[in-house]
């Protein structure tokens, strides 16, 4: 069975830390960082490699922060 793997790129300087993507992720890939970005927000980071590229996080992001890639391996 073909396995789908995904990856996201997070533009941390645009992120406002609203956590809406965090709630939308089916595989709990996202969490909030301990550090803050230039605007003073805790930005979203990846905490594991379970991303399947479903693009749910990118679709709900109000600030278009997330770019999604998906490939079959």
């Amino acid at each position: 069975m073909a396995k789908v793997v995904g990856d996201i790129i997070i533009d941390i300087e645009r992120c406002k830390g609203c956590e809406v993507c965090n709630a939308a992720c089916p595989n709990d890939v996202l969490e909030m960082s301990q550090e803050v970005n230039g605007k003073g927000y805790h930005y979203v980071i990846k905490v594991n490699a379970d991303c399947i590229g479903c693009s749910n996080c990118a679709v709900v992001c109000p600030d278009a922060v997330i770019t999604v890639y998906r490939a079959k391996v």
Binding site: V5, G6, D7, K46, G53, S55, I66, V68, Y69, R70
Partner: peptide, 14 residues
């Protein structure tokens, strides 16, 4: 946790 090998234009979905 980056996967640079799949971050290519043909794999871009969003």
């Amino acid at each position: 946790f980056d996967r640079p090998e799949i971050q290519t234009p043909e794999n871009l979905v969003y």
